[in-house]
């Protein structure tokens, strides 16, 4: 089995979000970039397939040279090879078209992406990628079992979960549940040393449609101070929620 894990390079979850250039750009100053948390679950599941069922695992990212430390980390965790498409990932449709080209040329059986990137939260790349290539697709995937060509996948739905049956080749938008939090791997020294010897292939982007772009950013309006209610006076909270906030 040949697996491609699509890795999005995103600001660490604790990052302060600021904008520059007259609020037209995300301010990357002092921001630490990491593997998108959803993709970490997918990468760990891919390593599981590699170790338990035999698989080759490649990782791909669409991004500038600045994304390389993140993709190196994926190699250190155990991926065999990495691909970087040398283009700024400004729009999900654009990224999906680039990844579709990689998948077409690489002959992958399973493409693991994340449910969404925690930066722009688009949630578009996996579904678009699957559709562009006519591959099967399962979103918000929390369980994945593969036997030969047959797949049993579980997806999270509002208020529960759904078990689905399908076949390879398949694209998933994955999340926690693919593996547990405690199973996530952090690169060890040996992994980091080995990653230096692994191939990181840089390819140039193909011509592709850019469908959307962010013209301006805004920070949320500053919040007023919290209104504290005495613990012995919960009636007051109910009154405030009813009369002032009008939510009950």
């Amino acid at each position: 089995m040949k697996i491609l894990v699509c890795i999005s390079n995103v600001p660490d979850t604790t990052s302060k979000i600021n904008f520059t250039d007259d609020d037209t750009k995300f301010d990357t100053n002092g921001v630490q970039f990491v593997i998108n948390p959803y993709d970490e679950f997918g990468l760990t599941r891919a390593m599981w397939f590699k170790e338990k069922q035999g698989a080759t695992v490649h990782v791909a990212t669409v991004g500038g040279p600045g994304a390389e430390p993140t993709i190196r980390k994926a190699l250190a965790i155990g991926a065999d090879e990495a691909i970087r498409v040398n283009a700024e990932p400004t729009d999900g449709f654009f990224v999906a078209q680039q990844l579709a080209e990689i998948v077409k040329n690489g002959g992958y059986d399973l493409i693991i992406a994340g449910r969404e990137s925690i930066d722009y939260n688009g949630g578009m790349v996996p579904g678009m990628l699957a559709t562009l290539l006519g591959l099967n697709f399962v979103n918000t995937c929390i369980g994945l079992e593969i036997d030969g060509n047959n797949v049993i996948a579980t997806r999270e739905i509002d208020g529960g979960k759904e078990k689905l049956g399908t076949t390879l080749p398949l694209v998933i938008g994955g999340q926690k549940g693919l593996v547990e939090e405690s199973d996530l791997r952090i690169p060890n020294m040996r992994g980091i040393m080995m990653a230096r010897k692994k191939a990181l292939n840089v390819v140039e982007p193909i011509d592709a449609t850019v469908a959307t772009n962010d013209v301006k950013f805004q920070r949320p309006a500053p919040k007023g101070a919290v209104k504290l209610v005495d613990a012995d006076n919960v009636e007051e909270l109910i009154t405030l929620l009813h009369n002032e906030a009008k939510v009950i």
Partner: peptide, 16 residues
């Protein structure tokens, strides 16, 4: 739309 997990908003243009 909201971006950065609600830590910001973007005005996004669609060209298609």
């Amino acid at each position: 739309r909201t971006v950065f997990s609600n830590k910001g908003f973007a005005q996004s243009q669609i060209d298609t």
